[in-house]
Amino acid sequence: QDPQLGHNNVSMGELDRIAQNIIKSHLETCQYTADELQQLAWQTHSYEEVKIYQSKPRDVLWQQCAIQITHAIQYVVEFAKRISGFMELCQNDQILLLKSGCLEVVLVRMCRAFNPLNNTVLFEGKYGGMQVFKALGCDELVSAVFDFAKSLCSLQLTEEEIALFSAAVLISTDRPWLMEPRKVQKLQEKIYFALQHIMQKNHMDEDTLAKLISRIPTLSALCTLHTEELQAFQQLHPETVNVLFPPLYKELFNP
C-alpha cells in the first residue's frame, strides 16, 4: 500500500486539510475558549442562587433554558457553515442536517463546559449541578444529559477530537429525507477518516473511537426525550411557548 495514502485511498494530506478546516471552524465558533472554561470551572452558583432557580415558576426556567439552547445553536450553525463541503450540499440537506443534528452537537459541545469532578455544568455564567434545573420538571432528561456529559468527559477528548466528532454527528446519512445522501455520505466518510487519523495520533487506546461512536444512539435518545418533554410542556403552557420562546427554537423543534 502506498504510504502516502491514508484510509480508503484519501491522501494523508487531504485528511490533514479536512481535520484542520474542521478544528479551525470549531475553535472559531465555540461560545467559550478552553482557557475561559478553565478559569470558570470552579465558579459555582451559590446555595442561595440555586434556591432561586429552584423556586422559579416552571415556565420561566423553561424559557431561560430555551434561550440558552438557542444561543448555543446559533454557534453550531456557524460551525456548520465553515465546514468545507457543507455549503456545497443542497439547501434542503443543509437545513435538514442542522434541524436534526444541531441539538446533538450542542450536547457534544456541552462536555467542554461540564466539570465531571463535581458534576456541574456552565449555565448563565456559573457552574451548577442538576438541582439548578429541578423546576423544569424533567428530572429524567436532566439526569440523562448530565450522565451523557460525564461519560463523554471520561474519554478525555482533545479539542481536535471534539471538533471532528461534532462534525461527524452533524454530517450524518442517518437523517431521513436527504435529497443527496451520496454527497452527504462522501463528506461524512472523509470526516470519519480524519477523526480516526487524529485519534490514532492522540490515543494509545484504539477503542476510544469505538467508544465515541457507541455514544451516538444516546445522543439521539436525548433529543427524542427533549422533544417529548417540550410537547408535554407546551400542552400545559402553550402561551409561554408561542409568545416567549425564541423563534429559532420553535422553528427547529416545532412543538
Partner: peptide, 20 residues
C-alpha cells in the same frame, strides 16, 4: 423554505468570527 425561514436566513448570512 418558509417553514425554516430563520435557519435559512442564518445560512445565508455572511458572518465572520468577530461577529459571533
Amino acid at each position: 423554505k418558509e417553514k425554516h425561514k430563520i435557519l435559512h436566513q442564518l445560512l445565508q448570512n455572511n458572518t465572520s468570527p468577530g461577529d459571533l
